[in-house]
Nucleic acid binder design. Structure first.
Length: 288
DNA sequence: TTTGCTGT
């Protein structure tokens, strides 16, 4: 006895196949989002920075790297913030210093010679040594992307900023076991500064911030604001500021997931208790 | 070289 299928049933099989495919896509996408979120949570503390107000200079997108996230602006042609975590490791060391690399994810082509002859250094935001020591070789290579660079005056980059990065990795990380860092540039106000104050495509910041958090039940934070025009041998604690001040200067809201009461305690004032900053504030630079 | 640039 032969059974004839109705047209509906004959269409049923492809429909079922489509449904199964859609299910796979849905599950796959869900998993992908879950993993992306897990990855993001491992690289930030209390959420990625958000804008207090939307403006033309607030457009940015998140570039995912090994060991750190970059909030990249195709308007400023700068990283606006970089976020990473540093844990104490048994034997901190890095591989040989690699060369700088163009990042093809950026809209404007920023070649490795883009700053040449400008008087500005290609200053790392996610630092080579600390990221390499904690997160490995692939992460180290990623710190040399031009999307991780910002124009810094040599006396800042090679002296004061280098001293701060060294203190973070060699003093704070062993002291607390792990720290979360957010760092980035601060730009002058005013439209003309935005448009003309550039090295090639890249806008030149007037200062740089770095926030170091010890994640805990009662978190501690230290925040620094360092202008371009330093000598380089100043005490680090000359540049302490509150996180509230950095939010006012950058327009960003750091740690948006932090409850209001905790945010007020952490961000409203400068507190250096427990950091033993005085032990390291005058530590000389490595290359002086 | 735990930062880089300039000149060969």
């Amino acid at each position: 006895m032969s059974r004839r299928r109705s047209p509906l049933l004959r269409r049923g099989r492809p429909l079922r196949r489509l449904a199964v495919s859609l299910l796979f896509v849905a599950v796959g996408t869900g998993l992908w989002h879950f993993q992306a979120r897990e990855l993001r949570d491992s690289l930030v503390w209390m959420g990625v920075p958000e804008w207090q107000q939307v403006s033309p200079t607030s457009f940015h997108r998140v570039l995912r790297n090994e060991g750190f996230l970059v909030g990249w602006s195709d308007v400023r042609v700068n990283p606006l913030w970089v976020s990473y975590r540093l844990q104490a490791v048994e034997d901190p060391r890095s591989g040989p210093r690699p060369g700088f690399r163009q990042d093809w994810r950026t809209l404007w082509p920023i070649g490795t010679d883009h700053y040449a002859g400008s008087g500005f250094d290609r200053g790392h935001l996610a630092p080579n040594y600390a990221i390499a020591a904690v997160h490995g070789r692939d992460a180290q290579l990623d710190t040399f992307y031009m999307s991780n660079m910002t124009p810094q005056r040599p006396d800042l980059n090679r002296r004061l900023w280098q001293r701060l990065e060294e203190v973070v990795m060699d003093h704070f990380v062993p002291r607390f076991g792990a720290v979360q860092v957010i760092t980035g540039p601060v730009f002058p106000e005013g439209f003309l500064d935005n448009v003309f104050n550039r090295v090639g495509f890249v806008e030149v910041p007037e200062a740089f911030y770095k926030i170091i958090v010890v994640p805990a039940e009662r978190p501690r934070a230290l925040a620094f604001l360092m202008p371009q025009g330093v000598r380089g041998d100043e005490p680090l604690d000359d540049f302490l500021v509150s996180i509230d001040e950095l939010e006012a200067r950058t327009g960003l809201d750091f740690f948006p997931n932090l409850p209001a009461a905790a945010a007020e305690a952490l961000e409203g004032r400068v507190s250096t208790r427990g950091w033993a900053l005085e032990e390291v504030a005058n530590r000389p630079g490595r290359f002086e």
